[in-house]
């Protein structure tokens, strides 16, 4: 192959990798809202208990941030610090960090494809949102605000 064609192919490779990276980044840290009452995965019960995520710690009275990590996860410790801090700053919000390294069953049950993945549960243990990748502080706070808003709506009714 002559050098010009080879160089073109090399540039195509760089372009493909760039598109892949942009696609990946655009999906990072976004919250996918799970509407209440819709079973979003087969076999998943409506309300989870701490045992369902392999945890002994209690869920929060208002919301729980369930973070899924592994030991080979560069961004999990930072996410853990962020979410633990947010949980401390809000009353009734708990943070659980679940290590999937030896819990293949949980990874499969919740369909975890990347770490960290964070589920946001409401006060009853229902999954209300799911964030793949490193969550941004604002996205999590927005979700927690939405949750407490809907709780108030229910109380007002």
């Amino acid at each position: 192959m002559n050098p010009i064609s080879a160089l073109s192919l090399v540039l195509v490779l760089v372009a493909v990798a760039t598109v892949l990276g942009l696609l990946w980044r655009s999906r990072q840290g976004r919250a996918a809202v799970v509407a209440p009452g819709t079973p979003d995965a087969p076999g998943r019960p409506d309300a989870l208990t701490p045992a369902d995520v392999g945890s002994r710690g209690p869920f929060g009275a208002n919301a729980t941030l369930v973070q899924f990590s592994t030991r080979q996860c560069a961004r999990c410790p930072g996410t853990r610090v962020l979410l633990a801090g947010l949980a401390r700053s809000r009353p009734g919000v708990a943070h659980l960090d679940v290590d999937l390294t030896h819990r293949r069953d949980l990874a499969n049950r919740f369909g975890i494809l990347q770490t960290p993945t964070t589920l946001i549960l409401d006060g009853t243990g229902r999954v209300r949102a799911r964030i793949g990748g490193v969550p941004s502080r604002d996205v999590v706070l927005q979700q927690l605000d939405d949750l407490s808003g809907s709780t108030h709506d229910q109380l007002a009714r």
Partner: peptide, 11 residues
């Protein structure tokens, strides 16, 4: 608060 029973023991 942070609980991590899953990773506290194997470490």
């Amino acid at each position: 608060m942070t609980n991590s029973p899953a990773d506290s023991r194997p470490q």
